[in-house]
Design a protein around this nucleic acid. Sequence first.
DNA 1: TATAAAATAATCCAAATGCGTAATTGCGGG
DNA 2: CCCGCAATTACGCATTTGGATTATTTTATA
Lengths: 216, 216
Amino acid sequence: MEEIKLVLVDDKAYNIQILEEKLAPKSEVNILFTACNGADFLNKLNVAEVLPSIVFMDIDMPEMNGIEAVLIAKSKFPEIQFVMITIFDDDEKVFQAIQSGASGYLLKDESASNIHRAIDDIMQYGGAPMSPQIARKAFQFIQNQVPKKQDEMPLSAREMDILRELAEGKNYITIAEKLFISPHTVRKHMTNIYDKLYVHSKVEAVTMAMNKGWIN
Amino acid sequence: MEEIKLVLVDDKAYNIQILEEKLAPKSEVNILFTACNGADFLNKLNVAEVLPSIVFMDIDMPEMNGIEAVLIAKSKFPEIQFVMITIFDDDEKVFQAIQSGASGYLLKDESASNIHRAIDDIMQYGGAPMSPQIARKAFQFIQNQVPKKQDEMPLSAREMDILRELAEGKNYITIAEKLFISPHTVRKHMTNIYDKLYVHSKVEAVTMAMNKGWIN
DNA sequence: TATAAAATAATCCAAATGCGTAATTGCGGG
DNA sequence: CCCGCAATTACGCATTTGGATTATTTTATA
């Protein structure tokens, strides 16, 4: 089985030790090095002759916290996968971590088998290991996006065609060519759109359509 | 251990059978009933004397698909947890399912132990069971949500003032009056904005500014 | 304080736009 | 079959806008 190169980052030696013990049974794991905070990690990473596949990263650390460290490291070495391992499960920290580029988010009391599973998730399935509580937050986050029940879109399919082209910044002539109709027709459609939306310009029509979610 | 009341929904009897076999070893599981599509499920749910705790729901079914079924059932019985079990892992279906109110999303070839784990995730941790591939999509979705503060906003403060007014749909004269400057100045600012953004129209400037998150 | 950058202002021209009016075509429901 | 409706095509006119150019004043900053 292929070797899996790991790095552990935590400011408390105790936590590192716990993790090492949990990882010990997994024979293919090779811990390249450990670090005690974000700055320490970045320093060691820059002089490392071999890059880790996965980094287990604590969040709350002195000098530089794990989220900043991931943000910086990920931009330089995007192929490294980061798994946050921390006691924080408040929404703010979780989403900051995810958006910084983390590939997974486990809570600190995960069992050894879950840690092993997390590694397999990443290495084999290209997955994103999460504790169930974190997964729930992720789902709720997604469910809360785009909940705005859009009020009735009053435009015809053809008018939407015009509007979409319009939003691309095209002018009437270009739109006409794209849709195989006369520029006059495009202009007439526009006046119809204006009438329906109670607006009087292209910018107003497009911004309204974007705000209502009719076009991306 | 407390009894866990399940319902299975799939149009292919074969899949139901597979699931039942995977669930059989878990003694506390009690399968209330099964259904062969969304409409069938809703009918049976409405006459059921006991509500299920968890519903395993296929997505692609005749009559009514699983996403619609969840959307309707969840609004009437929000305490029921739905886990989608399907072969689809395309983004569109996944996010539709999540936003319809699903609590989990597993791909069809999950092992028996993963199914059991999914049930425990929901019942014990209030979690959201996901296949690794789905978890990855969820992470990517969240990572894409917040504006990439990537490219520097190249416009001056004054140019942003003009751009904001522009996005309201105002014309140059109106903007000039609002900002107490000459219409000529507004137009000069506009050409500067166009030069900086490499665009050639009001619509393009405004849509770019919106997409980059410079204006809401 | 020198000097660069931004903001202000103006003019000319050609192109694009908004607005009103009107005629034609195609298609589905009464 | 005719009606109504949406889509389409068309023209004219006044206004707005985009592009190029020049110039003065204000602000920032090295």
